[in-house]
Design a protein around this nucleic acid. Sequence first.
DNA 1: GTCTGTCATATTGTCGACAATCGACAATAT
DNA 2: ATATTGTCGATTGTCGACAATATGACAGAC
Lengths: 241, 241
Amino acid sequence: MDASIADGRAAGIGRLAKSTLRERIAERLRAAILAGDIAPGSSLTETALSARFDVSRGPLREALRQLVDEGLLVTVPYTGTHVASLSVEDVREIFSLRTTLEIFAFDQVWDRRDDDFRAELLRRNRVLIATIDAGDDRASISAELAVHGLVYEAGGHKLLQHAWQGLCGRLQLYWAAHHRAHGRRGPRRDSHDSYIAAALGDDLAALRSEITDHMRRGVEVTERFLRDAGLANVGKKGDMT
Amino acid sequence: MDASIADGRAAGIGRLAKSTLRERIAERLRAAILAGDIAPGSSLTETALSARFDVSRGPLREALRQLVDEGLLVTVPYTGTHVASLSVEDVREIFSLRTTLEIFAFDQVWDRRDDDFRAELLRRNRVLIATIDAGDDRASISAELAVHGLVYEAGGHKLLQHAWQGLCGRLQLYWAAHHRAHGRRGPRRDSHDSYIAAALGDDLAALRSEITDHMRRGVEVTERFLRDAGLANVGKKGDMT
DNA sequence: GTCTGTCATATTGTCGACAATCGACAATAT
DNA sequence: ATATTGTCGATTGTCGACAATATGACAGAC
C-alpha cells in the first residue's frame, strides 16, 4: 500500500469540521456576548435573531439553549431570554471554584511537566505581555485565559477541562461587563510574573498559595468595582452591532 | 404595608414550575437513562422517541441537546445520538474531580454546620441504610447521592452545586451500567459510617483523607469491574421499556 | 382612587413537511 | 477476488406556519 491522498499525509488534508447551523449560530452569539456587543441583562428575541442571522427559529433556539447551559443566557418559559448578569456573589463563586480547580489541575500535571509544557507556558505568557503592551484589552483577556488554560489542557482531564470551559465563559462575560462599564481594564503587566515563576518552579505548596493570592486579588478588584457601580447593569437594554 | 398573601410568607406559596414539553421530555429521558432502561451505547432515533412520547421532533431535539450537555448522550451530526458509555478513564476522572469538589464543599460549609445540617445528614444516612437493608439497589444509589449531596446544597454555592449535578448524572449513568452488567451492586452497609463520623466531627484534615479514601475505594471497585467486564458494553443495543 | 376584569399584541412553544447528509449494499472495472 | 464507485434507504438538519402564553393598557366597579 503506497502513499495516497487518503492517507492524509499531504498538508491541509484532514478532518474538516462538519458545521451544523446550530454550532455556527452558537459560536457567533457566544462571541458577540463575550465581546460585550450585547449588554448583560438585555433581552434577545428569537424572531429578531433569526432574521438577523437569516436562519429559522429551530436551530436558533437550540443554540440559545446551549448558551443557557453554558451560563451565558437565562431564559424563563414563554417570556424571553436575557443575557446573564452576574451578581457580586456570582463572581465570588467563580473565583472560589476556579481557585480549587486550578490547584487541582496543577496537582494533576505537576509531575508530568516537560519541556514542551514550560516552553508553551512561556510562549503564552509572552503573548499576554505583548497584548497588554499593545493596549488591546480584548486580546489581553483572551491571552490571560490562554495562559491559565494551559494547565487545564495539559492534564488531559476531559471533565476538568469541561469545567474550565464553563468558568472561562462566565469569566469573560464578567470582564466584558466590567470593560463596558468601567472603560479599560487590562490585567497589569507584572501581575503574572510570580504566577509563572511558581508554575515553573518545584514548590507545589508555594504555587498553591500563589494561585489563592492571584484569585483573591482578582475578586478584590471585582468587589470594589461592583460595589461602586451598584447593580446598574441589570435590566439595561443593549443591541447587537 | 401590612402582611398579605403576596409577601409569600404563607406556606406553599411560591413560584410554581411552569412546565414546557422540553423539560418533561428531558426529565423522562434522563430518568430512563439513569435507571438503566436504555443501555449505554444504544442509539436513539428521534422519530422513534417522538412517536413514543407523542410529541414533535422540535422539543425532543432540544431535550436531547440538553442531555448531551449533561454528558449523558453523545451525538455526531447527521449520524445519530447514543447513550454515553464511560471508559475506565472517564470513571477515574469522575472520582478524582469529585474528590476535589467534595473537599472544597466541606471547606465552604465547615464553619457553618449547624444542628439542622447535622440532623439532615443523619436523617439521609438513615434513609440510605434503610434502602440498603431493603435490598433496593436503585433507591440505595439515590440515597447515597442524597447523603453526599447535602454538603453541596448546604454551602449555597450555585456553581459548585451545578458541577455536582453534572457529576451526579455521570455517576448514576455508570452505576446503572454496573448494575445492568454485574447484577446487584449496592453500597455496603457500613461503608459510610466513617464518612458520616468525619463529616460531623471537628477534624477537617481527617475528613479530607476520609473523602480521598472513600473515593479511592469507589474507583477501585470500578476498575476491577471494568477490567473484568472488558468494554463489552460499548455498542451493545438496548431498547426502552 | 384603587382594584379588578378584559382584551389586544407580541413572543415563545409546538408541529408537520422538506432538504441535506450519512451508512450500507450492490454494481462494475481491474 | 478485490477495490472502487454509484445508488438507495434511513436519519438528521432546517424551515415556515399555527397554537399557547405572558405582558401591558384600558375600561368599569367598589
